[in-house]
């Protein structure tokens, strides 16, 4: 708590003190002037016990009036001096671009469904984030570009999830232009190029889901694509359903995948069960949020509530007391 105009408070208090002093002095000078209706022998009245009780009540009310007046004036003076509180804000939390980069080879479909569904649920909480979906097999296709239209994002994610599940899904259209399948290096490299605002200070990340069963020749190797992402300041979060003990022969690729993701500052999740995916997506979302918490900015905001309420209450009691005294 602080005051934006502390000198004003001091000035008002000094003025008030002078005013009170002036009133007291003039009253003292005026005390002897007899105006009004002259009465004699009022000691008959003033020595009555009832009068004494009334006098005590009168003095109590006067004291309350003075106190209420003091509270009113000081709270008004404090209000005039603008009480403020310094609030730390953390900007940029919702300043993210996320590209979902899904391997749509046959072995990945179950996981892709889980990821899109989980991401659709996560999109409910987004505010300011932009999301894009890229699917790849031999070649990469932008299913929808970076957008913050969450209704659209949800509908598109739902649509592709339905396509994944239907036998004649069109999700793989355009993903076979290339030699082989699951060309993960090319897929990642394509995804790094989907960020349309390289000049803006936004956090960029790619959620790359692949079993890393690369068949054929890709233009970019996975480490090359990882280096490209790192150059563009993009974090890569890897989800690898193929990295399990049942597929030990892939351990070398899995290790490579892990190293690529960690090198970009991202994370790597190996799993066997599609049911774990929503938890992982959640974790990536929140991890991103903490990572992106920028330096706190201090903002001084007016906090007039307490003095304003005090002023109102004291004003109300002044009116009440004055009414009783006038009775």
């Amino acid at each position: 708590m602080g005051l934006i105009l502390p000198w004003l408070l001091a000035a008002l208090l000094i003025i008030a003190a002078l005013a009170v002093l002036a009133v007291v002095l003039t009253r003292r000078r005026r005390a002897d002037v007899r105006t009004g209706t002259p009465l004699a022998h009022t000691d008959r009245l003033t020595t009555l016990p009832g009068y004494h009780r009334a006098l005590l009540r009168y003095r109590a009310l006067l004291a309350a009036l003075v106190v209420a007046g003091l509270v009113l004036f000081s709270s008004a003076a404090v209000l005039a001096a603008r009480p403020s509180a310094t609030i730390a804000t953390y900007p940029q939390t919702a300043n993210r671009d996320i590209v979902l980069c899904l391997d749509v080879s046959g072995s990945m479909i179950d996981y892709d469904v889980a990821i899109t569904r989980a991401f659709g649920a996560l999109a409910e909480e987004f505010d300011g984030e932009r999301v894009s979906l890229v699917v790849f097999n031999a070649s990469a296709v932008t299913y929808f570009p970076l957008t913050s239209d969450y209704a659209y994002i949800r509908s598109q994610l739902e649509r592709i999830a339905t396509q994944f599940e239907s036998p004649d899904g069109a999700y793989f259209d355009g993903t076979f232009f290339g030699e082989g399948s699951s060309l993960i290096g090319d897929g990642l490299a394509a995804c790094t190029l989907r960020f349309d605002t390289p000049d803006q200070a936004r956090s960029r990340s790619i959620i790359l889901a692949t079993d890393n069963l690369e068949v054929g020749r890709s233009i970019f190797t996975l480490p090359d694509a990882g280096a490209l992402a790192a150059d563009h300041d993009i974090r890569v979060y890897g989800i690898n359903p193929g990295d399990t003990t049942s597929r030990d022969y892939l351990a070398q690729y899995a290790e490579e995948f892990r190293q690529v993701t960690t090198r970009t500052g991202g994370d790597y999740y190996a799993l066997d069960d599609a049911g774990a995916i929503p938890a992982i997506v959640d974790r990536i979302g929140s991890q991103q949020a903490t990572v992106m918490r920028g330096a706190p900015q201090l903002v001084a905001a007016d906090t007039p509530v307490l003095p304003a309420v005090l002023a109102l209450l004291s004003l109300a009691s002044i009116i009440g007391i004055a009414g009783r005294l006038r009775r």
Binding site: A31, D32, R34, T35, G36, T37, P38, L39, A40, T42, D43, R44, L45, T46, L48, P49, G50, Y51, R53, A54, L55, R57, Y58, L61, R324, L325, R326, R327
Partner: peptide
Amino acid sequence: ATVFEVADGARLPAFLRSSHGLAHEYAERV
């Protein structure tokens, strides 16, 4: 009315004079 005692000029606020039950007490005293 603004009322004062001639002996010492002291004010007698209306609040005190119109206090409940005082008129009766005063009348008895008089």
